[in-house]
Design a protein around this nucleic acid. Sequence first.
DNA 1: CAATATTGGAGAGTGTCGCTATCCAAGGGA
DNA 2: TCCCTTGGATAGCGACACTCTCCAATATTG
Lengths: 218, 218
Amino acid sequence: MRISELSRRSGVSVATIKYYLREGLVPKGEATGATQARYGEAHLHRLRLIRALVEVGDAPLAKVHAITAALDSADGGDLHRLLGITMYALAPEPHRPAEGDPAWTAAQEEADALIAELGWRVTRSSPARGRLAAALAATDRIGRPVSTRILRSYARAAEIAAEDDLTVIDPDAPRDQTLEHVVIVTARLEQALAALHRLAQEDASARSFGRPRPGAGA
Amino acid sequence: MRISELSRRSGVSVATIKYYLREGLVPKGEATGATQARYGEAHLHRLRLIRALVEVGDAPLAKVHAITAALDSADGGDLHRLLGITMYALAPEPHRPAEGDPAWTAAQEEADALIAELGWRVTRSSPARGRLAAALAATDRIGRPVSTRILRSYARAAEIAAEDDLTVIDPDAPRDQTLEHVVIVTARLEQALAALHRLAQEDASARSFGRPRPGAGA
DNA sequence: CAATATTGGAGAGTGTCGCTATCCAAGGGA
DNA sequence: TCCCTTGGATAGCGACACTCTCCAATATTG
């Protein structure tokens, strides 16, 4: 297909596709002349992956670029590695506190202990590990550490959810599409969890601080 | 204190404070002359709240403005209302699907049913309600609906966590400080939850797709 | 008291991000 | 044949969150 059809089928404007081509996020089409090229299904999948990363995963294009680069080079790479690269790129980096900070050290130990206790097989360098520790340290510093009870209860729920997430994967589908699905499922579940948390919080706040008939927000 | 001291104690540059003053995010100091004004502790709390919203809550200044406006006007407003305004402003708005979308309708009903079942007292217009529905609808559409088992298990965990969140609140502390703490605790817990979820996912991926010695990501 | 530094206030400028618009010449389709 | 689309490249734009520069009016310090 030509660029206009690719645009129509992907919902991405021609100008934006050209921009992605220039940036190397989408591989060039097969040139059929000085001013013509042909695109295929792979290009369509790629565009959908990019949109999923940007719109659902809220990733900056630079990170999208890291992911597509891995996709385009490590064709034979195993799926676990590819998933790792993708999820690592999607992770927001926490502003890491100073090395010597006692709250930080304690939080790291707590995170490690929890991971060990659950027997989770994660790399030492996983950004999620640091993110967890940073979150624990921050609440610590405010004087209200997260209770281990809650942490455990969430961890258990997360375990089940993660297992479920992966059933979405068809190892034989195109990689672009596989990643697209994983990104969407992961991001959406996180949205759902955050939403649940806020709803629960609103309920708790209504019961603690609300008036009998809670006029509530907005 | 004068602006330079306010800057030093808050860690926000003088230029930025001036900018916040111009934008009305921070109330003006008490003028003591044509080119002089005095600032107090309230200004310090306000700056810390703003930084918490921006850095931890990742809120755009426009939303911060909505929150500070509420703070500055509704001094007598009850805490529940103020919390509502704050958390509503922090909520990312989901791109709401078309009205007629069947997945959307079904997801909304599921969300409402869950809330009703748990007996949560949340307003009909709560953005978290829409966010939850949007997340459910998105995974639905991909063909992998979130299981109610997982949803319930997360909801239960969220309930406990939310209860805990509120113990951070001292109803007699300055409102700016109270909001700052709630924002930090809420945002950080959400980070922790997301991190747990990703760690669990990495573990699941390692077990399903990894090689015996999982070289993993990055 | 004089020299120097700081302040409030306002406007313009900066850097990043993710596009979007404009041009142009070479093909392609009717 | 004649017009429309395309690829390719360059420049421009709008939002955002500052940051810089000026200025005249104080404060502070010696």
